[in-house]
């Protein structure tokens, strides 16, 4: 460390001895200054083109009356101030009401899905922490839902949830005798639970993978010391494993929350373009209301509101969890 700190300081002094050396030093200094930016340039251009500029455009569009007549030349659409926002947030009218309902459904769905994903992932990772026969096989097996392409997995679930020829009704109705007639799973109120099952099935392996990685960073001697003190497995899990996972959990829960709240693929493949009301997640709702009515101004306003909500939740969450961690350390 000391050596690397000294070298750059001495280098210019040596080079200054000859005038030509001074020039190359300056030039290489400038080049060194530009180098990190050159390295970043491709990433920067792509991020601007695909993420940032479209997002700013989306924000601009939310202030415009952007109907199908203006799609070809969106810049010429008339400005409409906050009209799109007031339409979206007018909960007495149809548009606002259905948006609010979709938002609340999404909140409920997200809390349940993230909670279950976290629970299953953590439980599996901790139970697989110690070696036993078959551990490697199970670890690989549990990652299969994560590896399967979303649409292939969700299409299979859609088949399982078919009313007349699906597995779920065969088990529940034919084999266990629940209900007078086979239930509908992909329309009506049941669709919420169908969507939740698919979402948890698809999402928990990521929690498993992350927690598993986090477990590898816990020093072994902590367990050794605890077991010398006579702490059993359950005590070790409660007092060593779970507290050590806190930093991992902080990131994991946030990432799961954002993915689940924004999830479009799962409901879109499970239900097709029109999701039943009970499972009308907000991304699909915005997509539908934009493309059905071709009113992209209002759709953009809804997306901006969604983004604002996610920003606020993320900010508050990071503030709370970071502060909580600091005080618990003291």
């Amino acid at each position: 460390m000391t050596q690397t700190a000294v070298t750059p300081a001495r280098e210019p002094a040596v080079r200054k001895a000859t005038p030509g050396g001074a020039r190359t030093a300056r030039r290489s200094g400038r080049r060194r200054l530009a180098l990190p930016y050159l390295l970043l340039l491709p990433a920067l251009v792509l991020e601007l083109l695909v993420h940032l500029v479209p997002m700013l455009m989306g924000v601009a569009m939310s202030f415009k009356e952007l109907t199908q007549f203006y799609i070809r030349d969106w810049a010429s659409a008339p400005w409409s101030g906050l009209d799109n926002f007031s339409v979206s947030l007018d909960f007495d009218a149809a548009v606002g009401q259905s948006l609010l309902k979709s938002f609340l459904t999404t909140c409920q769905f997200t809390v349940l899905s993230v909670g279950l994903c976290w629970l299953l992932g953590t439980a599996a990772a901790i139970l697989l922490q110690e070696n036993f026969r078959g551990r490697g096989v199970l670890r690989t097996l549990f990652l299969v839902p994560y590896a399967l392409p979303v649409y292939a997995a969700v299409i299979t679930w859609a088949f399982m949830f078919q009313r007349d020829n699906g597995l779920i009704n065969h088990v529940l109705h034919d084999q266990l005798g629940i209900g007078d007639s086979p239930a509908f799973w992909l329309i009506g109120d049941n669709s919420f639970w169908a969507l939740l099952a698919v979402s948890v099935w698809k999402g928990w392996p990521f929690a498993f993978l992350t927690v598993m990685a986090g477990l590898q960073n816990i020093p072994r001697d902590m367990y050794e010391a605890a077991s010398l003190d006579g702490a059993g497995v359950w005590k070790q899990i409660r007092h060593i494993t779970l507290p050590s996972l806190r930093p991992v959990n902080q990131v994991l829960v946030l990432v799961l929350f954002l993915w689940t709240f924004n999830d479009f693929n799962t409901p879109f493949v499970l239900f097709g373009e029109a999701a039943p009301e009970a499972a009308d997640l907000i991304s699909l709702h915005i997509y539908q209301s934009s493309f059905q009515t071709w009113n992209f101004g209002t759709g953009s306003a809804m997306s901006v509101l969604l983004l604002l909500f996610l920003l606020v939740v993320t900010g508050v969450y990071l503030l709370l969890t970071t502060r909580g961690r600091k005080t618990s350390d003291v």
Partner: peptide, 19 residues
């Protein structure tokens, strides 16, 4: 760059299409 991860895809679908 990290915060782009929280963007709802639906927000920039249409602008990107227009671009």
């Amino acid at each position: 760059v990290l915060s782009t991860q929280m963007f709802p895809g639906i927000l920039f679908l249409l602008p990107l299409f227009l671009i």
